[in-house]
Amino acid sequence: MAAPLTDAGEFESWLNDRLDSLEVDREVYGVYILGILQEEESDEEKEDALQGILSAFLDEDTMEDVCKQIIKQWTECCSRSAAKRDAEDAEVQAIASMIEKQAQIVVKQKEVSEESKKRKEALLAQYANVTDEEDEAEEEEQTSGNNFTGNDKSLFKNTNVEEVLNRQKQKRDQAREDAQKKKEMDKMQREKDKLAKQDRKEKEKKRTQKGERKR
């Protein structure tokens, strides 16, 4: 199993400087040493592998110190990288948790909105029922006040018909009375005209008779 990955840039920079100070070719050995540190599990395995590389150009005492320095620096870099990754993971987790909470809030608000909408619809429906009942009650009161219910409607209808018939009868009676009065007046006028005509004839006859006597 490979060792945890570290911040290679930071460690490589330190390793290159250390190899340069030992006059070891970093282009050749730097990548090799980094591979050993990443692949080997324990510090002992790392140290044995490093000694196999550095023994070609370092004495035994120097080689042991350099191996320990390399392993120590690698471990510290790994720890810092792990802490950094943990911090990044914690930040990512915090962001994810915040997003999840916001999503829950949105869902809850949506549920509350739906519940509020249902309550509003229920209140509107209840208000509509109350309004309908009030309208019906008002119509009943108006109908009751105007005698428009049940048998009263028929009575009212019959009363209206009777009133219409009475008015028509009154009109006919009035017309008959007016006609009778006019007839009487016309008769009187004719009698008057007849008497006046007869009177004129009598007067004309008398004048004629007087004229004949004078001749």
Rank of each mutant, 00 (worst) to 15 (best):
R26T: 09
M1Y: 01
N16K: 08
D65G: 12
E10N: 09
K210R: 14
Y32G: 02
K72A: 08
S79C: 13
I36R: 11
E136D: 08
Y32H: 13
L50K: 02
I71C: 02
Q102I: 01
K84E: 11
S13T: 10
K120N: 11
L58A: 00
S113D: 14
N147S: 06
K153Y: 12
K110N: 12
E76Q: 11
L124T: 00
D152H: 02
R190V: 10
E91T: 11
K118A: 00
A94S: 10
E111F: 12
E140I: 12
E134D: 13
S144V: 15
I53H: 01
R26V: 15
S144M: 07
C77Q: 07
N166L: 15
Q170S: 03
G145A: 14
E136W: 04
A3R: 09
K68R: 15
E27T: 13
A82T: 10
Q168L: 15
A83D: 11
V161H: 15
S13P: 05
L19M: 06
E27S: 11
S97K: 14
E44K: 10
D17V: 10
R215T: 06
Q180P: 09
L124D: 02
A128Q: 05
S144K: 00
K108M: 08
Q142F: 10
E44G: 08
E121Q: 00
T159L: 13
G150K: 10
E44L: 11
M188H: 09
K194I: 02
I99N: 07
M1S: 08
G9Y: 14
T159S: 09
R119E: 06
I33Y: 01
E121F: 02
Q170F: 00
E41H: 08
Y32L: 12
A87G: 10
K194E: 05
D59F: 15
R80S: 06
D135V: 07
N147E: 04
A8G: 09
K206T: 01
T75M: 05
S154C: 06
F148C: 15
L15R: 07
Q209D: 03
K101A: 14
K206G: 10
R85N: 09
K205H: 04
Q209S: 12
R80E: 04
Y29M: 01
E136N: 06
A122S: 12
K183V: 03
K72R: 07
L15S: 01
D135S: 06
E141R: 13
S116W: 03
N146F: 10
K120R: 06
G35S: 08
K210D: 06
T62N: 12
E202T: 11
Q102A: 06
N147V: 05
L22A: 07
G30M: 00
A103P: 03
K118L: 04
K101W: 15
Q69F: 09
Q198P: 00
